[in-house]
Each structure stands twice: as C-alpha cells, then as structure tokens.
Design a protein around this nucleic acid. Structure first.
Lengths: 226, 226
DNA sequence: AGTTAAAAAATCGTTTTACGAAATGGACTA
DNA sequence: TAGTCCATTTCGTAAAACGATTTTTTAACT
C-alpha cells in the first residue's frame, strides 16, 4: 500500500466508500469538488481515481450530469487485448475456435443448471431475434445476448463474464454482415433453447456445435472471396 | 469518434504514435511536457491519456524516471472482474470447471500445432518446476507458466491471452498451498509434455483431463475441511 | 585515479485556479 | 399544456506552481 500513487489509493478508498454506502446501479456520486473534500485530495487526483474505476466499468461518467455507479461491475472494455492483435482475420478465426470448444459444453451445462427464469429470458431473447430477422434488421447484438444469457444460465461466474467478451470480439472484428441465410439461425437457436428447457444436455451440446460450425463455414467462405 | 473525450482521443493518437515509431519493450517516451506539445493538448490531458494506456499495461509509468513501453501489451490486471465476486470458493470452483473444459482441448491443439521452439520452452519450464519441487519451494507461478505456454503453443491468440488470466485467478483466489503430493504433478506434466512432443493429441488431452480432475479433487477435499 | 557523497537536473505527482462544454431542470412564452 | 430558452450544475481541459522521486552530474576526498 506504500508505493502506490495517491490517485490509486484514492480510488481504493472511493471504492470502499461506495461499497460502504451500499450504492446500487445507476446511483449518483457526489461531484468532484465534494469528493475532493471528502477524500482529502485535490480535484485532479479525484478525477484520476474516478477514471481508474471508470476504466474498470465500475463508474460511468457523464459530462454535465455527474458520475454514476455502472451496471456491469468489473467488466473491462477490451479485457483480453484484442485491439492490439494485428491479424484480425486470424483473430476472428481463433475466437470461433475457442467458441467451438467452450460453447457446446456451456449448452450442456445450461441444460443442467438453468432456472425457470433463465428459460423465460432465453425464450424472450430468441423471440426478439426472430422479430429482428423478419424486419430485416441487424440482430448481431441480440445474438450476442442469447449466447451470453446461455452462458449465465450455467450458473458459472466465469462463463458468465467470459462469453460476452468472446462474442463481442467476434461481433466487432468480423466484417461479416448479418447472414442471408437466417433460417438456419432461427432453427438452431430454437433447437438449443428447446433442448435446454427440456434438460437434454447432449442435444443442446450437439445443436450448439452444429450452430457454430455452420457459422465458421460461413466465415471461411467469405474469407475466400476477399 | 466524435463523442469521445479528448483524453481518449489523445490516448488513441499516442498509441498510433507509438506504433508508427515502432517502439519496443522498455523504450522511453518523451516526457509529459513534450507530449503535451506534440499532441497539442494540455499536460493534464496527456496524463489522463497515458493513464488509460497504463491501465491496459501498454505503458509503465515511473515517477522521476519517465514513461516506458510495457512488456505485456494489452493485458489487464483483472480482466474478467474476479475481484468483485463475493463467493471466492465458488469462483475457484467455477474457474476449474472452465479449465476442465478448455485445457484438454488446448493440450490436443498444442500437440497438433506446437513448434520445436515451443517444445524446448515447455521442457525447460517442466524441468524448472521439478527443481522447485525438489527444493521444497512454491511452484505455483511456474505451473501457471507451463499451462500458459501450452496455451500459447496452440498458436491460438485467444487461448494465449485467456489461459494466463484463468490460471492467475486460481492461483490468487485459492487458499491452497502447494500440494503435498508432488509426484502426481511431476508425472502428469511429463506425460502431457511427452504426448505434445510426439504429437499424440488424444493422449495429451487425456493426460490433461486427469491432471485437472486430480487437482479439482484436491480442492474439494480441502473445502470439506474448512 | 577511484570512490563516495552531495548537488543538480529530469521527470512524474499533486494542488490550485480558471474557464469551456454538456446535461439538467425550471421558468417563461405561445 | 407544450415547447423553448436560460441558469445552474457538473464534468472536461488548460496552465502555473511546487513537491517527490529517480537519474545524472559534479565535486570532494582518499
């Protein structure tokens, strides 16, 4: 604790301050001047402390409005350093390889551990995706939500945090626009969902494998064109 | 790019500046005043920009000495927000569950893709672990290095960045001191290494599964005591 | 000449003051 | 009532000044 910079110590103190007050998502912090007084450091130092916590998505800064408690505590922007990888094509390919290993197992685990509430939310997301498809809109964000919720349904904390990162990586770095062949997406999503609901782990696993392999194939085809 | 704060834009510019100059690990940046001039922003903003990059481990700040290029580009301190999880026992358990899914596949991939240089490094690390064990010292750091290097040997960029994070989590949050039964560690590590070298993917996979299951069992035994 | 200690320089750390930019809320007007 | 505008609040940025720490230089001493 001794060789840390004052701003870092202030950040730690501020975090404790937040936890002590039991502040919840969306709640507003005192402004920078008041924090400067309460923490006993200059406003500049307060700003750096706040930024440290903001960089970890613990706080959300809004100019003119204030600083608020964020919703996704601890999740970072680019946690695994994807931005600094040169070969983005390989990155997407590698991401899909990881998904192909992890997500079938996730589907099986979700089939085993998902709650009724998880089932409802998954169903809703699945429906929203189908709606977006019918309207011809981009559904990649919702697709990510589906896979993330599935990961959350495993009740495994690490999966819950990891999968959004991986899916986001694919979403950001793949140049692929939403596929033309939506039918496959709708169908396999439904299959996965149904298997999870009925707690058929192996079926969920297989459906997920098929879903991902199909997408990987699509990516590869597109690569061949460029 | 428009609704970003000036400091964030400055950070991006600074990063480009670094990449353009092809700066390498350990190299020193101009001081804050010069950067302030070169980037055309105030020193305060420069500091915030530098901190953004420092928080991503791209830069390393040393008071009185200067700011330098870091060695582990893009790797963050606590990328998946482990620090904010309440139940650390469950966290370790969840981490091991993830490892049990991912690492056998990694072993198989490594057997397929590892280079001669990878083989050499893995062998060296394996030897170092055995030495530490014979000396009765803590080898958890080196164990992490072994699993990380194995992940790197898959030639999959995501694995390479992901596994160190997972292993570090286990290492930090598990209260387990190095096991008494070292023999198992030495033996299975050797088995994995040998299988990877001889490109026997399935054998590597199985050896890794056994290795992890053994450790999980150990964790559970220890939990039962407390 | 070599060693060591003090001084100087370089650099980041922190505070303070001042003003700009954005969001919010309330008063005023149609 | 609805919409617009303005004052207030709050974060964003800049600049100057001094403190803290590290590195380098200088100087003194053996």
């Amino acid at each position: 604790m001794k060789n840390k910079t004052l701003a870092e110590k202030a950040a730690q103190e501020l975090l404790k301050f937040i936890q002590d007050k039991n502040m919840v998502e969306g709640e507003k912090l005192p402004n920078e001047y008041e924090l400067s007084n309460q923490l006993g450091v200059g406003r500049n130092t307060v700003r750096e402390a706040v930024r440290i916590l903001a960089s970890r998505n613990i706080l959300k800064i809004k100019q003119g409005a204030g600083t608020f408690i964020s919703d996704k505590p601890g999740m970072v922007e680019d946690p695994l350093g994807f931005l600094f990888m040169e070969d983005r094509r390989k990155l997407v390919s590698d991401l899909m390889q990881v998904r192909l290993i992890v997500e079938p197992a996730i589907a099986a685990l979700a089939a085993q551990n998902a709650t009724e509430e998880d089932h409802r939310q998954l169903t809703r997301i699945c429906q929203e995706i189908e709606n977006l498809i019918f309207e011809g809109k981009d559904f990649s964000e919702k697709d990510r939500a589906f896979h993330s919720k599935l990961a959350e349904s495993t009740q495994n904390l690490v999966m819950k945090n990891l999968i959004p990162v991986i899916c986001q990586g694919v979403r950001v770095f793949s140049t692929t626009v939403s596929a033309q062949e939506y039918k496959q997406t709708i169908e396999t999503h439904r299959k996965i969902l149904q298997a999870v609901k009925e707690r058929r782990g192996v079926d969920a696993e297989q459906a997920m494998s098929y879903h991902l392999l199909y997408n990987i194939q699509r990516f590869q085809k597109e690569e061949d064109l460029t």
